[in-house]
Design a protein around this nucleic acid. Structure first.
Lengths: 218, 218
DNA sequence: CCACTAATGTACGAACCGGTACGTTAGTTA
DNA sequence: TAACTAACGTACCGGTTCGTACATTAGTGG
């Protein structure tokens, strides 16, 4: 945390631990997302930074620890972005729709995060399970949904047999699948799920679906 | 295809090309689903069969071709199972619900298939794209949905701004995510999506959601 | 400006892993 | 039963890849 305070912005390659560490982590995130844990190469990560492989072991200890930190940082970023969302001024149904759109946009804009999550699930979540900081039963999205569901239910417009996590699951599933499985789905059904011309259709459809479900009689 | 016709069922280790090949493929499918393409080990696959690594190269040519055949066979099996579904006797809404349930059950019962698809998407579908036999724009599920949507729309009970592939996407996304992302989702939100006690809830919820969406005013 | 440490670079080792050269055996057929 | 081939086994090679021993330099405090 010793801030670099050189005259007139140092801006480049002198010794800078923080910068080196951050650069390694950024490159590693891209590499792991690109090729998976086992497909990623430590030498490749090193080559893409302005430093050497030695520094990876100096700062992170090993390939696995590097992967875990990349995963942790990716989650932290998404969490931070979620925290920004505010829908207090909207009616429950409109607010749910808005939240679905934010999630939709988010997934589309962060394919590397999606890929890291897929990779982590292939490994059965063994690494994320050891990151207690990430276990947050009250994620911003879930907190918002809890409140919105309560409001809608009190107004008598929302069904009462689904909870916040269920709704979050529904929204996440749609947004995640659209990005994560774009390749196999696109190949088999001949439909590019990320075609910009269809983007608005799917964004609206998701909101329609979630709201239709919640407002249907339970 | 020369059927083994030995006296009183040979039942074991004599020379049997078909059997050896099939055994390798079965073991390989499990290994690739378990550890991913790069994580899978050819030696490990060989060790788990009653034959040797040499046979893998004799019958399949290499690790990649073995993976591709495992993927192809997995898709073929799912396709065959889909073909069995018949919902002609049901009203459109009930039929859609039934189809959703079949897909739900199917995904839950075949986690290895789910994992292979996830793995293939991490590889950006590069292998499946080279399997023209699998490119089927009219999958059994899509054919059924096309018919059901038409019937429902003619009866004036279904909205007209979604097509069969959209509905299939919705259903698949939910079923796939629930199995594929069970680990990270379960860890972060503290909810086991495959808990048998919640199974019926999610199975019903999916049908409710899809039907509510389709019957809502477009 | 000197000594000390954090940060960095180089070169290399050892295990792993996909793949293959080469030899052998079982079953078939003339 | 001899000859032939499909099926199978063994032993090994060569490149890859994670990791490290060791040397070096930049910056900092006294």
């Amino acid at each position: 945390m010793k801030a670099s305070r050189a005259p007139s912005e140092p801006s480049d390659r002198r010794r800078d631990a923080e910068r080196t560490r951050a650069e390694i982590l950024a490159v590693a995130t891209a590499e792991f997302a690109d090729r998976g844990y086992d497909g990623a190469r430590v030498d490749e990560i090193a080559d893409r930074t302005r430093t050497t492989k030695r520094m990876i072991y100096y700062y992170f200890g090993g390939k696995k620890q590097l992967y875990v930190e990349a995963l942790e940082q990716a989650y932290a970023r998404i969490r931070a972005a979620e925290q920004q969302v505010s829908v207090d001024h909207l009616e429950p149904a409109a607010a749910i729709r808005r939240l679905a759109e934010v999630t939709f946009d988010h997934h589309e804009a962060n394919p590397d995060f999606i890929r890291l999550v897929s990779i982590e699930n292939i490994h059965r979540g063994e690494h994320i399970a050891r990151l207690p900081d990430l276990i947050d039963l009250n994620t911003p999205a879930v907190r918002l949904l809890t409140d919105l569901l309560r409001r809608g239910q009190e107004q008598g417009v929302f069904r009462t047999d689904v909870d916040a996590v269920d709704v979050h699951l529904t929204i996440s599933a749609f947004c995640f699948f659209r990005v994560a499985n774009q390749y196999t789905f696109g190949t088999i059904f001949g439909r590019d799920l990320l075609d910009p011309d269809r983007r608005e259709h799917y964004r609206t459809m998701l909101g329609d679906m979630v709201v239709a479900h919640l407002t249907a009689v339970g």
